[in-house]
């Protein structure tokens, strides 16, 4: 069953690529609208050989990693406080809810004005997006903890510190990782938008450069790389989710 699905998936990708190649070669005279996969591959090879790609890829990954890790730390901490203390939850909630409901993109111009066009503004964009998602989910996880476990910790005479470290946080872990999964996609979008808007390196910058110079193969290379990044991060988190919360029916998407 699983195997057959996998085989069909591979077949579908392979067939699609061949169809794409043949159709573009036959029907289109130049590569402006849709370059065939082989010229995309050639462009990818050329760009990575020149070392240009590494620089942009590294820049984006670095911004993403910095923003994401700080967001995890701050988001879990504040989310924990929101889950534990009602007054803190009520204090934060209106602002968090507002931040969460405004499209990510709308904030980007503001963040660039405040934090400049360099590395820092992109880290802030990633941080803002991810932290809010993790905070909300951590709070939900801490709130929804099974009271039986807390009673158990009391009967074991765990100190409050131990209760947090051994009971509350592990119990909230599946929620936290869901927050991360929700944050990852949006954060990747945010960092690319910020790079498109104002930057001198990164995949977003490459995207803009390629579209402004009408270099379609390069444009598609960037799209493919972004797709790989998206699928990679999503896959990693999904793996983590399956491992930490195996009882949940794992989402395919």
């Amino acid at each position: 069953m699983q195997q057959r699905g996998l085989r069909r998936g591979l077949l579908s990708i392979l067939g699609g690529l061949i169809l794409w190649e043949v159709l573009t070669r036959l029907l289109l005279e130049d590569e402006l609208l849709i370059p065939p996969p082989t010229s995309v591959a050639r462009s990818l090879w050329k760009l990575s050989f020149a070392g240009e790609l590494n620089r942009h890829l590294y820049a984006t990954l670095f911004e993403f990693a910095c923003g994401f890790s700080t967001a995890c730390a701050v988001g879990i901490f504040l989310g924990y406080l929101m889950g534990r203390y009602r007054w803190f939850d009520e204090l934060m909630d209106p602002w968090i809810a507002t931040l969460y409901s405004i499209p990510v993109i709308a904030f980007v111009p503001l963040i660039i004005i405040w934090f400049g066009i360099g590395l820092f503004s992109k880290i802030v964009v990633v941080f803002k997006i991810t932290a809010v998602a993790i905070m909300l989910n951590t709070a939900a996880g801490i709130k929804n903890i099974d009271p039986v476990w807390l009673e158990l910790s009391r009967s074991m005479r765990l100190s409050p510190w131990e209760t947090t470290a051994k009971i509350r946080l592990p119990a909230a872990l599946p929620y936290i990782i869901t927050g991360m999964r929700l944050g990852v996609g949006r954060a990747l979008l945010g960092v690319i938008v910020a790079e498109l808007m104002a930057a001198n390196e990164g995949l977003g910058y490459l995207l803009r450069e390629a579209s402004e110079t009408w270099d379609s193969p390069k444009l598609f290379v960037t799209v493919v790389l972004l797709a790989a990044m998206g699928m990679g991060s999503f896959g990693l988190i999904k793996k983590g989710e399956q491992r930490l919360a195996p009882w949940r029916e794992s989402a395919e998407w």
Partner: peptide, 10 residues
């Protein structure tokens, strides 16, 4: 899973 902005120029 691809960030949507990537498709915008295309």
């Amino acid at each position: 899973t691809t960030p949507r902005i990537a498709f915008a120029p295309v």
